[in-house]
Amino acid sequence: MVNEFIDLRLAMVALRSPAGCPSLRELARLAPARAPLSKSTVSNMVLGIHPPTLHQLSAFVMACGIDAEQRLEWIHA
């Protein structure tokens, strides 16, 4: 369970590694068309400038290749 934004940010950074450490630009490109992300939005989330909305978090997790079941775990965390 994630209690603070810093915990979520660290988990998001760690999630990039199993996905092959895609660049921020690549993550933005990999986000689904129905949930687009810009490179600056991805950067703001990963750097901890702004917490993601649920929509943005879901798109980020999908861009990292997480399946639907695991994505729900991320959203509920």
Results as ranks from 00 to 15, higher is better:
59 A>S: 09
25 R>Y: 06
62 M>R: 15
67 D>N: 15
69 E>D: 13
22 P>Y: 03
62 M>T: 13
65 G>I: 04
12 M>S: 03
60 F>V: 00
49 I>M: 08
7 D>K: 05
63 A>R: 08
68 A>H: 08
77 A>V: 10
27 L>H: 04
47 L>Y: 14
19 A>G: 03
22 P>H: 03
21 C>D: 15
49 I>H: 12
18 P>Q: 04
19 A>E: 04
36 P>V: 11
28 A>P: 03
57 L>D: 04
18 P>Y: 10
25 R>S: 14
36 P>Q: 07
14 A>E: 10
27 L>I: 14
16 R>Y: 04
42 V>N: 09
35 A>V: 08
70 Q>I: 01
13 V>S: 06
60 F>Q: 07
71 R>I: 12
16 R>F: 02
77 A>C: 11
69 E>Q: 14
57 L>I: 05
25 R>Q: 13
49 I>G: 02
15 L>G: 01
51 P>N: 03
71 R>D: 01
17 S>G: 08
38 S>G: 04
21 C>E: 15
6 I>L: 09
11 A>W: 02
19 A>V: 03
16 R>W: 08
25 R>A: 15
21 C>H: 14
28 A>N: 05
45 M>D: 01
51 P>K: 13
76 H>C: 13
32 P>G: 05
77 A>Y: 10
47 L>C: 12
48 G>C: 08
72 L>G: 01
65 G>C: 08
59 A>H: 01
72 L>W: 06
35 A>N: 12
63 A>E: 00
49 I>C: 04
37 L>F: 00
64 C>S: 08
34 R>A: 06
9 R>P: 03
15 L>H: 02
21 C>M: 14
56 Q>R: 04
39 K>V: 00
38 S>V: 06
1 M>P: 06
71 R>Q: 12
43 S>V: 05
60 F>R: 00
59 A>F: 06
55 H>Y: 13
65 G>R: 10
58 S>F: 06
51 P>E: 12
25 R>I: 10
20 G>H: 03
46 V>T: 10
47 L>D: 10
62 M>F: 12
33 A>M: 11
